[in-house]
Amino acid sequence: NKFNKEMRNAYWEILHLPNLNEEQKNAFIQSLYDDPSQSANLLAEAKKLNDAQA
């Protein structure tokens, strides 16, 4: 299933973003579980936030 793979990839990438705190990571990961079809968008948002907090 495409979403499972996308979701897993997004999950791991978000988990390893160095500039997000636990609360931010948890919020993105919760959103992933709530709507796996948004994995790519959530990952993009997480990366933007990560870069902004660098």
Rank of each mutant, 00 (worst) to 15 (best):
A44W: 12
L43K: 10
K25V: 09
N9F: 15
Q38T: 11
Y33K: 03
N50M: 02
L42H: 06
A10G: 01
P18T: 10
M7E: 12
Q53A: 06
E22A: 11
A40M: 13
E23K: 11
L20A: 01
F28I: 03
L43Y: 05
L20M: 05
H16G: 08
N19H: 11
D34I: 13
F28T: 03
Y11Q: 06
N9K: 15
S31P: 03
Q53S: 08
A52E: 06
N50I: 02
A44S: 08
K48L: 10
P18V: 10
F28V: 04
Q24N: 04
Y11N: 02
E45S: 14
Q30Y: 15
E6L: 12
K48D: 10
A44K: 12
M7R: 01
L43Q: 08
N1W: 00
Q30T: 08
N41H: 11
A27D: 07
S31V: 05
L32Y: 00
E13I: 15
K25Q: 07
A46W: 01
A10K: 02
S39M: 13
N21A: 08
S31G: 06
D35K: 14
K25I: 06
E6H: 05
P36E: 02
E6T: 05
L43W: 03
N19P: 00
A54S: 11
I29G: 14
P36Y: 03
S37A: 09
A44D: 06
M7W: 15
E6R: 05
K47D: 02
N50G: 03
F28W: 08
K2Y: 05
L20Y: 00
E23M: 10
Q30I: 08
Q38S: 07
A54D: 09
N21F: 14
K25T: 10
E45M: 15
E6K: 04
K25S: 05
A44R: 11
S37F: 09
Q53D: 05
A54P: 08
K2R: 10
K48V: 10
D51M: 12
N50D: 07
S39Q: 02
P18W: 15
E22F: 14
S37M: 09
A40Q: 09
R8Q: 09
L49D: 07
H16K: 13
P36L: 03
D34L: 13
E13W: 15
R8M: 09
S31F: 11
P18M: 11
A52F: 09
L32A: 01
L32N: 01
F3W: 03
P18Q: 10
N4L: 06
A27W: 14
D35S: 11
E22G: 12
H16V: 03
P36M: 04
N21H: 10
D35M: 10
A40H: 10
N26K: 11
